[in-house]
Design a protein around this nucleic acid. Structure first.
Lengths: 346, 346
DNA sequence: CTGAAAGCGCTTACAG
DNA sequence: CTGAAAGCGCTTACAG
C-alpha cells in the first residue's frame, strides 16, 4: 500500500542501502546520488516506516503514560507538560486514561509492554499486588509522577507532601484560625493521603491546638467529593472557620457548597486548596493553594525518564520538587472576637 | 533483550509457528502442546512484539489525535471520550497537543504517517495550505471532530453551529434582552467562527433588533480572551444586558471580569456560553450554555473512524450531532422597565 | 563512496 | 494437527 524504500531506490536508480543512508543523514553519499534520492522521496511522498525501523533498531521512541482522569485540570496540565517535553526530545506518547479502572490499567501495562514502549509514566497510586508484581518483573523503566504508591519502593517525582501540607495548615493557623476542617484524600496513598493528613494534625498540635475529629473528612480528590464533604461539615453544630482541602478540585467543591448554602468565602469560611491547577485562577474568589510546580514536574519526569532509558542515570530515592504557597483571595485572617461570634452563632 | 517467540518455542519444544498459533488463538493445536506453550509463555513472562506483528500484518491499531490544547476542559473531556472508545475497540492513541503551533501539527502529521497510524483525528481547524495538501495526499483516513476548517471539503463530526448559535441568541432575545453582546471566535473557522457569528446577527434581525457593532468582539475561545473582551465591552457608554460567548471558557472569562468589576451575573448582565464543558457546573453562578454532546461526539468520532479504517463505510458530508440548550443560573429575563434603567444608569 | 546480504520478531501460505 | 521457509520494510556490518 504505502510507498516503501524499495520503490524509492528503484526510482532513484540506487540501492536501498543508499536510500537508507540518505534517510539517516549519513555522510559518504555522493551529492548527485543524494539529490536523486531526495527527489524520488519527494515525488513518491515517501515516509519511512517507523515500525520497520523500530524492529531493527530495537527502539520505538515511545513512552506510555497512565493518567487517572484526563478531565481533571491538574492531570491534563501535567500531561500537557509531559507531552511537550517528550515531543521536544522526539518521543511520542501512548496515553491511557484509566478512570479509576484498575483492570484497564493492567490491560494497558500489557499493551505498553507489547508496544515495546521505552518507558512508562504512571500518575496513579492505587496499584494492587498484581500490578506491583507486573511492574517489578518488567524490564522497562517505570516512573511515578505526582503520586507515590503505598508500600512500594518505586521512584516518584513528587513534592514533599508532609512539609507542604504542614505549611498550608500553619498558614491558616497564623491567620488566627483554630477550627480548621480537613478534607483529605485516600489513605492508600502515602503522599497525598497519609502525609498530608499527618502534617495537618501535627501542625495543629505543634501550635497547641486540639485535633477536632468531627472536622475531618476524606474524599477522592474530585470536585463532587469536596462538595459532599463540605456539606457534611456544615451539619455539625459548631462550624469551622477554615477548610483545608488536599486538592484544588475538592477545595472548589467545598467553595461551591458554601456558595450554594449562602455562605461567603472567605467572609464566613476560608478555603485552602492544594495542587496549583489553573482552576485556582478561574474561580471567584480566586483560590489560595499550596501549589505543586506542575509544569516543572512534567518536564522533569520526562527528562528523568529519558535518562533512565539511555542508562545515563540510575535512580536512588524520589525526586523532590519545591512546593509553594500561593495566596489569593479565599482565605482571610480571623480575629478573636469573631471566633466567639462564630461559636455563639452556631 | 526481551523474550522472543523463539525462546518460547525452544522452552516448549515446539516450532515458532505453533507458538504463534497459540498466541493468536487458532484451533488445530493439540491441547498438550497448547498447554506447554502457555506454560513457557508464563514462565518466561513473554509478551509478543506488536512492532513485529504490525510489520507483517500491516496493521498498527494506532490512531493519531491532534488536540489544540489539553488543558482546556472541553478538549480534555472529548479526548477522554475518544480514548475510552478507542480502548474498547483495542486501538491505542498517539496524542499530540499542538498548543496553536502549526509547525508542531505538521511535524506530528509526519510522525503519524511514519508510525503508520490507521487513522488521524484532528480537533484543530486552523490548517494552512501546506497541511491541507499533506492531508489530501495522505492515504490515511482523516476525520475532524468538533471543528470544521474553512475552504475545505474535509469531513467533520460537528453540531449545527449556525442553528445552535441562532437558538442561543433567540433564547436571550426571548428573555427580553435587546442589547446582547457577542464574543465570537476565529473567523477562519467556518463553524465556530463564521456560522456562530452569522447566526447571532440573523437572530437579531429576524426579531427586528438592530445589530450593534460596538457590542461585538472576537476572542480565541480561551478564558483570558473572554475576560479581555468583556473588559472592552464594559468601556462602552451603554452597557449590554446580556453576553453570548461562543465558548464556555470565554463565557467564564467574561463572568470573572464582571465579578472583578463588581457586577452581578445574572443580576446586572446575563452570560451565555457554548460547548457544555464541565466548567458550566463548576462555576457560580452555574453557566447557561448551548451544549455540544461532548461524550457522544468523541464516541462517534472514533466509531466513524473505525468504519473508515475497515472500509465498511464511505463518508459523504459531515456528521451532525444534536446540540442542546442547558439553562442554568447565568441568564435571567429582563423587563421593559429595566431596559430604561440600564440606559439611564450608563 | 556504494551495494548485496543478513537479520530484527513476528505471521502466513504451503507442504506434509 | 505441525513445522520449514518466505516475507513484512527497514538498518547495518561486511566487502569492495
Amino acid at each position: 500500500m504505502a510507498v516503501k524504500i524499495k520503490d524509492v531506490a528503484k526510482r532513484a536508480g540506487v540501492s536501498v542501502t543508499t536510500v537508507s543512508r540518505v534517510l539517516n543523514g549519513e555522510k559518504y553519499v555522493k551529492d548527485d546520488l543524494k539529490k536523486r534520492v531526495n527527489e524520488a522521496i519527494k515525488e513518491l511522498g515517501y515516509a519511512p516506516s517507523q515500525i520497520a525501523r523500530s524492529l531493527v533498531r530495537n527502539k520505538t521512541n515511545l513512552i506510555g503514560v497512565i493518567v487517572p482522569d484526563l478531565t481533571s485540570n491538574f492531570y491534563s496540565t501535567i500531561l500537557s507538560s509531559i507531552e511537550k517535553t517528550a515531543s521536544l526530545n522526539d518521543y511520542n506518547l501512548l496515553v491511557c486514561n484509566i478512570i479509576e479502572d484498575i483492570d484497564k490499567e493492567f490491560k494497558y501495562l500489557n499493551v505498553f509492554q507489547e508496544m515495546r514502549v521505552e518507558g512508562i509514566i504512571i500518575m496513579h497510586e492505587k496499584i494492587n499486588p498484581e500490578i506491583r508484581d507486573f511492574i517489578n518483573r518488567l524490564q522497562i523503566p517505570v516512573l511515578f509522577s505526582t503520586v507515590k504508591p503505598a508500600d512500594q519502593n518505586f521512584t516518584s517525582v513528587i513534592v514533599d507532601d508532609y512539609k507542604a501540607a504542614y505549611e498550608a495548615t500553619d498558614y491558616l493557623i497564623k491567620l488566627g484560625h483554630e477550627r480548621i476542617a480537613f478534607i483529605g484524600g485516600d489513605m492508600r496513598d502515602i503522599t497525598s493521603g497519609q502525609n498530608r493528613y499527618t502534617a495537618y494534625r501535627n501542625a495543629l498540635t505543634d501550635h497547641g491546638l486540639k485535633i477536632l475529629y468531627e472536622l475531618i473528612r476524606f474524599g477522592d480528590y474530585k470536585v463532587a467529593s469536596g462538595y459532599a464533604m463540605m456539606n457534611e461539615l456544615l451539619q455539625i453544630e459548631e462550624q469551622p472557620t477554615a477548610v483545608f482541602a488536599v486538592s484544588d478540585d475538592m477545595a472548589l467543591g467545598a467553595m461551591n457548597c458554601l456558595h450554594d448554602r449562602g455562605l461567603q468565602v472567605p467572609g464566613d469560611i476560608s478555603v485552602m486548596g492544594f495542587d496549583g491547577s489553573q482552576l485556582t485562577e478561574l474561580v471567584r474568589p480566586r483560590l489560595t493553594s499550596m501549589e505543586q510546580p506542575i509544569h516543572e514536574m512534567g518536564q522533569l519526569t520526562v527528562e528523568t525518564m529519558l535518562e533512565l532509558i539511555s542508562g545515563s542515570a540510575k535512580l536512588e530515592g524520589d525526586i523532590i520538587m519545591q512546593h509553594r504557597l500561593v495566596v489569593r483571595d479565599s482565605c482571610r485572617p480571623i480575629e478573636q472576637a469573631e471566633k466567639q461570634t462564630a461559636v455563639k452563632s452556631s
